[in-house]
Design a protein around this nucleic acid. Structure first.
Lengths: 165, 165
DNA sequence: CATATATGTCAATATGACTGACATAAAGAC
DNA sequence: GTCTTTATGTCAGTCATATTGACATATATG
């Protein structure tokens, strides 16, 4: 049970290592969302609005179904949040061309501006962490994070192809 | 704007890299919490109960203030969740010896069992991701995650504190 | 034409968060 | 020994976000 050389129980180390992983996720996510949350409060919005704005901004022209699939909430839950964003002029809906039942979602100028403002803080936080940790650590971070995601969802990455020049 | 050799805009790459970081956090956290959430539903509990059970289990004898400081919620919010857990016999409270105003928190046997059941899934998920990514990647993951946490909170790691009182 | 799909909506409910005000017991300061 | 602060709890009201279930509408597809 106890390593003769180090006097340390290797199973305990492993347990401790895994619990640190759990805690890193909790604290990183807690702090990662706290800055945008404060900005959203000024607009009377919550985190759910941020998620919608983020993914619509990231994927202009996406359908409601695609958004539901990413967020993993019910359409009734999405409905109110999305409705507010449309009513207040942050998001537009237009019928699909191939399939006119679809409502293709996109950000308005106002929506783009809010998205920029919200994501800026998170981008800055990640940029700082990446810079301080170094390129090699970033590679490791990506590998582990990808491994934490359900296998079925992994092909989603990268979410978007860089435009060709 | 465009690199002559690669034909790729380096600013775009950086933007893309940062957005992937944002998304990795979102998806990893979403999937990381989904399994325990399903178990909690059987008990009529939510994610807030899990957080309390986790941190009390991790830090037996902790005070209510310490827990509030970790969770960053109001005492009124904690009150109901903690009260339920005490009422239903998952958590015990006993007065501090040095300071009898304190209610030192700990898990009962039943609480330990539920904590084990909940955390097991998350531990397994992390163990799998660590194993697949390799030791070096894990080091990088830890560095980046720590960098994402507010500087003031970082001394919290590693979390295990010397037993007080 | 019949069925399936994409989306929306109404209603009821639950969880978990908030602010603000007030209460109590105990500790610490003077 | 009083005075003040701290640790905790509680009451009351509110809000954001999620749920399930049922039903509606428009459009696509076989």
């Amino acid at each position: 049970m106890t390593d003769i050389k180090t006097g340390i129980n290797p199973l305990f180390l492993r347990e401790e290592e895994l619990r640190q992983g759990i805690e890193l996720l909790f604290f990183a996510y807690r702090d990662f969302t706290s800055e945008p949350d404060a900005i959203l409060a000024d607009y009377g919005f919550g985190r759910a609005h941020h998620r919608v704005i983020y993914f619509v901004g990231r994927n202009p022209g996406m359908t409601v179904s695609e958004l539901l699939d990413i967020l993993r909430i019910t359409k009734q839950s999405l409905s109110r949040v999305l409705g507010q964003l449309v009513d207040e002029g942050f998001v537009t809906q237009k019928p699909g061309i191939r399939d006119r039942r679809q409502r293709l979602l996109a950000l308005t100028e106002k929506g783009i501006e809010l998205e920029r403002q919200l994501t800026e803080r998170q981008r800055a936080r990640i940029a700082r962490a990446y810079r301080e940790a170094g390129a090699e650590a970033v590679e490791g971070f990506r590998k582990v994070m990808l491994g934490l995601i359900d296998e079925a969802d992994r092909p989603r990455f990268p979410l978007r192809q860089p435009p060709r020049r």
